[in-house]
Nucleic acid binder design. Sequence first.
DNA 1: CGGGCGGCCTGGAGGC
DNA 2: TGCCTCCAGGCCGCCC
Length: 274
Amino acid sequence: MPELPEVEVLRRSLEPRLLGRRIEHVEVRSPALREPLDGRSLRRRLAGRRVVALRRRSKYLLVDVEAGSTLVIHLGMSGRLTLAPATAPREPHEHLALRLDGGERLRLRDPRRFGLAFAAATAKLGRDPHFERLGPEPLDPPLDGAALAAIVAGSRAPIKAVLMDASRLVGVGNIYATEALFRAGIHPARRAGAIARARLDRLAAAIVAVLEQAIHAGGTTLNDFTDGLGSAGEFQVSLAVYGGEGEPCPRCGAPIRRLVQSSRSSFYCARCQR
DNA sequence: CGGGCGGCCTGGAGGC
DNA sequence: TGCCTCCAGGCCGCCC
């Protein structure tokens, strides 16, 4: 489900509702996620503490609480994190629920179970295995052609794979890599290290623009993404090629093609993208 | 080592 | 109405 824009939209939607709230109770309802939930650690680090900050790194949402602990959440493909009244009925695939003062519950659901949640010391997150090998953020500071040139230097991999490699650049997944390459007029299979600098300038600008526009639109809701309060995104109507195999290219009208790279679908216009 | 692929899961969509 | 296949926003580990 979520790439950088969706996680950022989620963060912004929850921030005003969570800051200052106390976590009264931590309930692990079903520990089976990509990494099993550790109820003891979650309770020890979170229970009784107030939320002091909501941050995002890559596609991880970070909930900082008092006394130097952080709840780390990754939504995988199908994870959803929403705030609901404590009286709201339970729903299937609810793995973790945090009861807050004021009578609400923050709950993590994840049917496909590719997500994960754990608590750790805030000061040690940089050395955590989930974080220590992550590349730079694309929006902070905004990616430019020089930074992108350094990222792709010497790589023989397809540019699309490089954009989606979190050890080189975080936050860009299948949808936004596909859309940025369309905007920049670059074929997804082009060898990354062989792309001219002028085109890298365009690609960097396209990545920044598509991510910012998607955040502004509340994210992309293909199936079930919502923010923390249940609102769907609207960027799906602005997608130029993603998911549009056989439909006309919005720029030239040629049929959009689909290609599989590293077992992921890419969509592109063979006339506009070289 | 870089790069590619399968596997992890469930559920929705579409063909027959 | 089923039953089957394919496909899905991410990531890791194994292979060459």
